[in-house]
Design a protein around this nucleic acid. Structure first.
Lengths: 218, 218
DNA sequence: GCGTCTGCGTATCCCAGGTTACAGACCGCC
DNA sequence: GGCGGTCTGTAACCTGGGATACGCAGACGC
């Protein structure tokens, strides 16, 4: 199992403990993994797919906090693990995903004795701090068209294709579907992108990038 | 020195190393401690006062990311992340503050060998993650009047006094002075607060709290 | 007392973006 | 090939709050 790569450098005792305690879960695209306020225990390692950590406001509007990619750890779990706080957000499988869960007690034990786990924990936490700070900065400083352009450039495949519905995009940048449609229409009118059902193709990445750097669309 | 409390549980060797390597700095209110993009290393323990971590957008508008209070740590350089990437925000002394700085190399050494430092590090990082997530959630879900009410209730002393200028408050919640004045005027018109030069007194905390829970001022 | 500086109060205007309300268009399935 | 569900396009409208532009009032030094 690929997830085991993470544990290669453990002591034999540690590896034994892990192989006994590790639980693997599979999630479908869109499936909710953790709900806000839930008491979580254990560390979640993403083996395959991608997880999305997001908030849900009373009105039902979502906003992505950050993503967790394969090989990374869900630190919220670590956070709750070490602080005894309740989980402060929702987590969902962005695509079909496989997750390896190390139960809380085992993880704390490993953290106490295994150097690799200590480093990994700190690294995971730092990464999230960095991502959250970046996100927060962008929310404050950027307009929606800049955030949208940024998302398109980030999520585009090698050939500039983004396979997402407008609804999903809206949830990512924390706005509504209509607004996304409006902004995409502006981009499309300038031939920077072309749109299709569940698909956006970036035609002029350089010009999109310019939107981010500057301040406005016009 | 009070900061030494933190290091009480170190091994003798560790304590020696710290007492040799620790550098104490004093900062005036408003003084900048770290600038964005600066190459920082080590850990900052707040001994006295309070630090503010914030972003500064091109337009010059500030927005507070989170605060660090006495006894808490700002872990800047533990791994490649904050070492190689540059620090993504500004840090400023919110009040006159004393900070004990543990240089990067020493901190990494301590982290590798001292149990207390490992726990402290994870705890500090988790705390920051939690604060950032909370802040991000509020930015998305709350209106400015709610954010302002929240800030007033949080920063008020025992007798409901907040000693801040409107400019400072605006920087905290990421808006402009004029908007703060407008909202404060609304609150004052309802006799929930009274205002003065550099001072706001909360008269009806319960009603302010109601603003947060609900959705609007009216 | 008098100038100067810093902070407050207020009014007017304007725009990004949220809201509402439909009208297609594509997609798979029966 | 018709039908229901999911997605997109778009237009008209509304509002929170950012921008601009002052005038005024304490504080503080001289």
């Amino acid at each position: 199992m690929q997830a085991m790569d993470l544990f290669r450098d453990l002591s034999t005792a540690g590896r034994d403990a892990v192989s006994r305690g590790l639980v693997r879960h599979d999630f479908q695209k869109g499936q909710t993994i953790v709900e806000k306020g839930q008491q979580v225990s254990g560390a979640y390692f993403v083996v395959r797919g991608e997880l999305r950590v997001f908030t849900l406001s009373p009105g039902g509007k979502e906003a992505t906090l950050y993503m967790i990619r394969p090989g990374e750890t869900c630190v919220l779990a670590l956070n709750s693990l070490f602080n005894k706080l309740l989980y402060p957000a929702w987590v969902q499988a962005e695509e079909a995903s496989a997750v390896a869960v190390v139960p809380g007690a085992l993880y704390r034990h490993l953290f106490a004795s295994e150097r690799v786990i200590q480093d990994l924990t700190v690294h995971a936490l730092s990464t999230v701090v960095f991502r959250l700070m970046t996100e927060l900065e962008q929310v404050h400083a950027w307009q929606l068209d800049q955030r949208l352009a940024s998302l398109l450039l980030n999520k585009a495949s090698d050939h500039g294709v983004v396979l997402k519905t407008q609804q999903e995009i809206a949830a990512h940048i924390g706005t509504t579907r209509e607004v996304v449609a409006r902004l995409l229409a502006e981009f499309a009118a300038r031939s920077w992108i072309t749109t299709g059902r569940g698909r956006i193709t970036v035609r002029q990445p350089a010009l999109l990038a310019a939107v981010i750097r500057r301040g406005g669309t016009i």
